[in-house]
Design a protein around this nucleic acid. Structure first.
Lengths: 105, 105
DNA sequence: TTGACGGGTAGGGGATTTCCTACCTATTGT
DNA sequence: ACAATAGGTAGGAAATCCCCTACCCGTCAA
C-alpha cells in the first residue's frame, strides 16, 4: 500500500474525517476528541493510529496527555488527484455536458 | 451511509480510482476497462457497482455493450470537504520554503 | 508510595470487503 | 435456431475492519 492509498483509506471512515475536522480547531488530547464519539476510547485510539500511519495527524506528549495535531500535507495528494476531474464537474455546472459528450464519441 | 460517505468509501480502493482515471479518456465498455486489471471480470463488475452506487459512474447500454462514463460531480463533495484544510498544507509549504531560504544563506 | 487518570496494546467477535467460480440473461452473427 | 460474446448476479472463502473488554505503562496528586 503506497502512501496515497493509505491516505484515501484513512479518509474512508466518517469517524476519522470527523477527527480531522475537530483538529481544525487546534491540537487536542484524546479525551477531548473522544467526547464527540459514541465509542469506547480504545476504538478511537485505533482510528488515531490509522491517521498517524497515513501521516494525517501527529502526537506530542505532555505529561500524561497526548496532544494530537492535524498534519494536512498528505491531503495535498488528494487535491492533486482531484485536479484532472475538476473540469468535468465544472462542465456539468456550466451545462456543457452535451459538448463533452460529442467530444467523447 | 450518506452519499459523501459512499463517495469516500468508493475512492478508498486503488482499483476504483484507476477506473475513474481510465474514464477520463471517455466512456468505455467493461472489457476495455478490464484489460488494465489483473482480476476476473466479475470482480471488476462489483467495483463498477460500488462506483455506480456512489454516483461516480453511469452506464449506457448499446447492444450487448455497456459503456461506462465518468460522473465527476460527486467529486465536488470531496473538493469541498478538502477546502478548510487547504490553508494548512499551504502554511506548511510556506514554512518549508522559509526554512530552505534560511539554509541558503 | 499508592491510587487515579490518560491513553496505548492484545486479542477476539461480528460485519464488511474483495476476490473467486459457477451460472444467468441479453444480444449478435452464422 | 444456435453458438459465441458482453456482462451481470449468486454464493462462498479469506482477509480486513471496527468495535468491544481486559490489561498494560507512564504521570500526577494525596
Amino acid at each position: 500500500m503506497g502512501r496515497t492509498d493509505e491516505v484515501f483509506a484513512a479518509l474512508a471512515s466518517p469517524v476519522r474525517r470527523d477527527v480531522l475536522r475537530l483538529l481544525l480547531d487546534g491540537p487536542q488530547p484524546v479525551q477531548r476528541l473522544a467526547e464527540h464519539f459514541d465509542m469506547r476510547r480504545p476504538s478511537l485510539s485505533e482510528h488515531l493510529k490509522v491517521l498517524r500511519e497515513a501521516g494525517l495527524v501527529s502526537e506530542r506528549r505532555q505529561g500524561r496527555f497526548r496532544y494530537y495535531s492535524l498534519e494536512a500535507e498528505p491531503l495535498r495528494d488528494v487535491a492533486d488527484w482531484l485536479t484532472p476531474y475538476e473540469r468535468f464537474w465544472r462542465a456539468k455546472l456550466a451545462g456543457l455536458r452535451d459538448l463533452l459528450d460529442e467530444e467523447e464519441l
